[in-house]
Design a protein around this nucleic acid. Structure first.
Lengths: 194, 194
DNA sequence: ATAATAGTGTCTTTCAGACAGTATGAT
DNA sequence: ATCATACTGTCTGAAAGACACTATTAT
């Protein structure tokens, strides 16, 4: 978002805000409040990344930021009110950002990249129902490595992470594809690569 | 350590301290300062775990703790001044602790367990020089799974993580074992299990 | 020599990748 | 029919586990 006030006024920065100790139970509640207030998003995947602190990351003095990443689907992305001064940038190349926010992006990118093939994380970038091809492509883009289609289907079956959406088929391709949804309503980790 | 003052006076708690914004560059510097002041330890492996926060984890009001775990060898352990009121407890069963420190231990345990087989972390629990048997046993204890000795040696070789300590042999066993040291002076991650 | 642990070589099993082949819809 | 993509089955190669075997020291 474009910063309205000093320091770094006019520059791009990640959305954030101060903890309101009177209303926020913890820092995750703060993150979710900011997501709702600034972006109108609620009930989305949101996970703590790390705490960035130092004497000089903010010219006003010593500071610490507890950072979270949130994942939304393309659908949620399109529903975000475009009247906000929100600007979307690629995580891998966010351009110049205020404070140490570029470093934070790098950290988040590494986290997502390393977590992608060990969890259901990529599925959260998709709508509730998706095809196996879409899921595999998302795994590939997030992890940065290409996956064998046949082996991917085998592992998805073995990990027992998806449920068929009865009778639902994608119509986007030559042959309609079965639609699936995550079995678990939360992010689950695997003990091996997908 | 045993807490000297309220809240939770007399109870066991993890060593910690407030950030001194005038002398600590960041929270890791705070962690290292506390390690030095309270335990006399310096230059040890120390990594951020997560930030624990909530309105009720401290009866005095809303609070946040940026937590770190530190790893020392048995040798360092024995050099810690036993005059401090430090008490060592198993991470898996720390007993009753002040604040949410038991929860923090659980979190650290999960972190170490999941990181063990994907990094050189276990080697940091050992002295600078160690045998392959010692290293494998440490991997086994930290990860909670037994490892095949032959495969372990193969992977250690492939990962190119160790260097022989020329002419140095352990004398603890029937046949003396070659001593090794880590090639890298820092924690390195693997992209597969050891 | 025997015991005990270190270290090696090889066989077997398991798992991931390749890829051919079939299935199902649109044109 | 043919094209395009979905999905399946099977072969192959690589990696992990099992385990027998040799090596080196102490007793």
């Amino acid at each position: 978002m474009t910063r309205g006030s000093a320091p770094f006024a006019g520059q791009q920065a990640l959305p954030g805000g101060y903890v309101h100790t009177d209303e926020d139970q913890d820092t995750e509640a703060t993150a979710r409040r900011v997501l709702l207030e600034k972006l109108g998003l609620r009930d989305i995947l949101c996970e703590q990344v790390a705490t960035f602190s130092s004497a000089d990351r903010d010219p006003r003095g010593w500071s610490a930021s507890v950072t979270y990443f949130a994942v939304i689907s393309l659908q949620d992305f399109e529903s975000v009110d475009q009247a906000t001064n929100l600007k979307w940038v690629p995580l891998t190349n966010p351009g110049k950002l205020a404070f140490d926010h570029a470093e934070i992006c790098q950290h988040v990118h590494r986290r997502i990249q390393s977590k992608a093939i060990y969890s259901t994380l990529p599925a959260w970038f998709l709508p509730k129902h998706f095809t196996l091809a879409e899921l595999r492509q998302t795994y590939e883009r997030l992890s940065g490595q290409s996956l064998n289609d046949s082996a991917f289907r085998r592992k998805v079956r073995e990990l027992d992470m998806l449920a068929e959406v009865e009778g639902a088929k994608s119509k986007d391709t030559a042959r309609p594809a079965q639609l699936y949804r995550l079995k678990e309503a939360k992010l689950t980790d695997f003990d091996r690569k997908i």
